[in-house]
Design a protein around this nucleic acid. Structure first.
Length: 779
DNA sequence: TGTGAGTTGATTTTT
DNA sequence: TCAACTCACA
């Protein structure tokens, strides 16, 4: 049933309503922080549906999976069951490319290389070309290529900018890199966009079809679009220019990734007759917080003037604290949080701590642990980036795309099977000479003269194993993953290892199996390997953040965008960190303004309480040094803020709530203050024990049970062992066949099936667990 | 060929 | 500080 219109529109302000009810023609929504933007977007989609626009004509593009999921779930309550396509740019492009791969010289089973993969590929190209890297690094070259791609500059069009040192190298290597990718039937992240943009430009009829197909396009966070994304959206909005974008120039923080602020600043020029709606009322923060944010961002030149206001209460003063050391900073923040939690005033999830770089989280973590405060970190090492996961996925990648050399290189000797560096080199040599994929070269190992017998045999065995795995590509994902773990010996190696680290890896792989199983449930039917790989390639760190758990959140300022918390701490507001030194050193105003926006984003996450702080002394990269407070702090309305130097408070034993008196905030005093901080260096390094690996744990599953799980848990009459007790790699016994090992599991509930390899049996056997007479064997 | 110690070199943000 | 990479040795 459609939601009646009046219901949908109730509780919207006039400005919001104007945006929601705009249907035909371009629309620009300038949405300040906390202005209910997501609400407006989802209501607008619901409105479009209400006025009879088919769901399949609507497309909503976001930058993160999280944002897409958020929208999806909100829309689900407004307009249940409507198949509106929502997702990230990259995912959308992956889809389009899948359907039109041939147009850009790819096969439809192409692989998506992540940063690590494409970097490896680039390095091998650089080596092949014999490029001298003494004055640059592979990463710099990579970045330059990425920059070019984001600016729609293809390999054949690349002309080095004058004075750009690296230009010469890029000019030479970019085409080779691109060829290598095509040969491997692979794309990097940037290619997803570039290929689609190219495809739309060169195939007018395809473009027209898609334009017609997606008549109503919405783009979230438009200020973060780069030229490629702009071109794509533009190309799909020519015949049907019903493009609605939302964004805030003041929250553009991805310039370094090619985001082009002009896209939003010039939107009105690009699309004539655009309707502009400004959402300036903030529903999130107190007046005090908003004033601080506003004053800071006033210092930027490249922006659209915007008046932020709120009807929220004045609230408490924003705090600006100077601590002697980072340890004091962390300790005091942790104590404040602990006290608020213990007093029952707030819960752990109400707090967030932001910092400019990931490395800054360590001290905070340490203090939070000391105070036994639960926290979650959104940081670099996410699930799909872990070695063991990437290894196993590489097997899957190679199964899906036999031309993926990067995948092959990753696993041909993982776990080790006697194929060393020199053998590999010879193999690569051979592949290069004949211009064939490595896997094909491996098939000819016996014919390669340079290879000794032993190596050739090892390679042949690898190929045989690969082909054996290949027989299962149409099986459910869980089964494929299980097979990979068993057949490759990967599981066995870890099981036999004493190292705690390896046990953890085993647990992570168990999680991967669970993920595969959940995927199978979501996607019944055959041959979904490709889709599974695509999904796993396009997930990001911040997607792992869980709003529901009751934990303090630690994250970078970048990751914080789009979120809100009652209490926010921004630490290390120091020159060189925020703004980051790289944005200061070449006096680039744009870069500096981006740093300022970053701080603006951080500040505007806070609803009720905000504390900015810096340490007068900070140990960074093992070196301790006095700091200079962030220049941005000078731009704030300091007179109306609570400025305390916390030395006094730190000496007090009990009450943290009221930091002692308003000591004047002296920006110069910190530098020569080292006398009162004797030898803290050593002392701290002792305290600073390495972060336990456990902290990395991130759950892929919610812990919720599906109906099928429950079913599986039920004890069926006549059997002692619940179906769930059977795990991959487990030893089991069978009255007829004797002892064996479970090599794969698949299916759900009564259909759950185990594949067992019995000892001394030449082939595997499959059993329905519900009926089979299998028993786990205690080891 | 594989392992481990030792050294180096780099350290922003991420789809 | 730490991870990635090199190089020497078994």
């Amino acid at each position: 049933m459609d939601t009646p219109l009046y219901d949908l529109h109730r509780s919207l302000t006039p400005a919001q309503l104007a945006a929601v009810t705009h249907v035909q023609g371009p629309l620009l929504i300038l949405a300040g922080p906390g202005s209910g933007k997501t609400r407006v977007v989802t209501h607008r989609i619901a409105h479009l549906l209400n006025v009879g626009i088919p769901a399949r004509q609507i497309l909503a593009l976001t930058f993160t999976n999280k944002a897409a999921a958020e929208m999806q779930s909100r829309l689900a309550t407004l307009a249940p069951g409507q198949p509106v396509w929502m997702g990230t740019f990259h995912r959308f492009c992956a889809r389009l490319l899948r359907m039109n791969a041939a147009l850009v010289g790819l096969a439809e089973n192409y692989s998506i290389y992540d940063m690590e993969d494409s970097r490896k590929m680039l390095i091998s190209v650089l080596e092949e070309e014999g490029v001298d890297l003494s004055h640059t690094s592979p990463d710099a070259v990579h970045h330059a290529i990425s920059w070019a791609k984001n600016h729609l500059i293809t390999a054949d069009k690349y002309v080095p900018a004058r004075g750009l040192q690296i230009g010469r190298i890029v000019e030479r290597v970019y085409p080779k890199y691109q060829q290598a990718l095509l040969r491997a039937n692979a794309v990097d992240f940037d290619d997803l966009l570039l290929h689609v943009a190219t495809m739309l430009r060169e195939n007018p009829e395809v473009r027209a079809d898609l334009d017609k197909r997606y008549q109503y396009i919405m783009v979230d966070e438009y200020q973060d679009t780069n030229l490629a994304q702009y071109a794509i959206v533009r190309a799909l909005s020519i015949d049907y220019p019903n493009l609605a974008v939302t964004g805030d120039p003041d929250q553009s923080i991805y310039g370094w990734r090619g985001a082009n602020l002009d896209n939003i600043l010039d939107f009105e020029k690009d699309f004539p007759n655009v309707k502009v709606v400004r959402l300036e009322q903030n529903y999130r923060s107190t007046k005090a917080i908003l004033r601080v944010a506003d004053q800071l961002i006033e210092h930027n030149v490249r922006r659209k003037q915007k008046g932020l206001y709120t009807d929220n209460p004045e609230g408490e003063k924003v705090r600006l604290f100077a601590y002697p050391t980072q340890r004091d900073e962390a300790e005091h923040i942790a104590s404040q949080i602990a006290q608020e939690i213990h007093s029952g005033r707030r819960r752990a999830r109400d707090f967030a701590i932001f910092y400019r770089t990931n490395a800054l989280s360590r001290q905070i973590e340490h203090s939070l642990r000391e105070h036994v405060i639960p926290y979650q970190i959104v940081n670099g090492l996410e699930f799909y980036q872990r070695k063991e996961i990437k290894d196993v996925l590489a097997y899957l990648h190679l199964l899906n795309n036999p031309r993926s050399d990067v995948a092959l290189l990753r696993i041909i000797n993982t776990p080790t099977r006697g194929i060393g560096k020199s053998s590999l080199q010879k193999l690569q040599e051979h592949a290069r000479r004949k211009q064939i994929p490595l896997l094909d070269a491996a098939r000819e190992a016996g014919l390669i003269k340079e290879l000794n017998k032993k190596s050739a045999l090892a390679i042949a065995k690898f190929v045989a194993m690969y082909d054996r795995l290949g027989e299962s590509v149409l099986a459910p994902l869980e089964e494929i993953v299980g097979k990979v773990l068993t057949e490759t010996g990967y599981r066995e190696v870890l099981q036999n290892s004493e190292a705690e680290e390896d046990q953890e890896r085993l647990a992570n792989l168990e999680e991967l199996l669970t993920a595969a199983r959940e995927f199978d449930i979501r996607n019944p039917g055959q041959g979904n390997l490709e889709q599974f790989l695509e999904e796993s390639s396009l997930v990001a760190d911040t997607d792992a953040w869980e709003a529901e758990t009751d934990k303090v959140t630690l994250m970078t300022l970048h990751a914080a965008k789009g979120l809100e918390f009652p209490c926010v701490f921004i630490i290390a507001c120091e020159q060189g960190l925020l703004p980051h030194e790289r944005s200061i050193k070449d006096y680039d105003r744009d870069k500096l303004e981006e740093e300022r926006r970053l701080m603006f984003v951080g500040i505007t996450r806070a609803m009720e309480r905000l504390q900015l702080s810096y340490a007068q002394y900070r140990t960074f990269r093992g070196l301790s040094a006095p700091t200079v407070p962030s220049m941005f702090l000078m731009e704030l309305p300091r007179h109306e803020m609570d400025q305390s130097s916390n030395l006094a408070a730190l000496n007090a034993t009990s009450d943290w709530e009221e930091p002692e008196g308003d000591v004047d905030f002296d920006f110069g005093a910190n530098v020569d203050d080292s006398s009162q901080l004797p030898a803290h260096d050593d002392e701290y390094s002792q305290l600073d024990e390495p972060r336990p690996k456990k902290q990395r744990e991130k759950t892929l599953t919610s812990g919720l049970l599906t109906a099928a799980d429950l079913l599986a848990r039920q004890e069926s009459p006549g059997r002692k062992v619940p179906i769930n007790a059977f795990k991959h790699g487990m030893t089991v016994s069978h009255p007829e066949h004797g002892l064996g090992t479970i090599t794969a599991l698949a299916g759900e509930g009564p259909k759950r099936t185990a594949t067992v390899q019995f000892f001394g049996d030449s082939q595997e056997r499959k059993f329905r667990l519900l009926f089979a007479n299998l028993t786990p064997v205690e080891e």
